[in-house]
Simulated assay, not measured.
Amino acid sequence: MIDNRTAPYAALVLRVTLGLLFLAHAGLKIFVFTPTGTAGFFASLGLPGWLAYVTILWELAGAVALILGIWPRLASLAMIPVLLGSIFTVHGAAGFFFNNPNGGWEFPAFWIVGLIVLALIGDGAKALRPTPLRK
Rank of each mutant, 00 (worst) to 15 (best):
P130L: 12
P35C: 02
N99P: 02
G114H: 09
L60Y: 00
A11Q: 08
F88G: 06
Y53C: 10
W58S: 09
F110I: 09
F31N: 00
F22D: 04
V54N: 13
A63V: 04
R73C: 09
G19H: 00
P72M: 11
E59N: 03
T38N: 07
G19A: 00
P48D: 02
L12R: 12
V90R: 07
G37V: 14
L45Y: 06
I80G: 06
T17E: 04
G37F: 14
Y9N: 14
A52R: 04
K126P: 01
F97Q: 03
E59F: 05
T34Q: 04
D3Q: 05
G124Q: 10
D3C: 06
L83K: 00
L14W: 12
K126H: 00
N99T: 14
A93C: 08
A125F: 03
G104I: 07
P72F: 14
T34M: 01
F88W: 08
I56L: 02
L118E: 02
V16K: 07
W105F: 15
V13S: 12
L51M: 00
V90C: 04
A109R: 09
L14P: 12
G49R: 00
L68R: 00
A10M: 13
D3W: 01
K29M: 06
L77M: 15
A65P: 06
P81N: 08
T17K: 02
A63C: 10
K29P: 13
I121F: 07
I56Q: 01
A61G: 13
L47Q: 10
L21I: 00
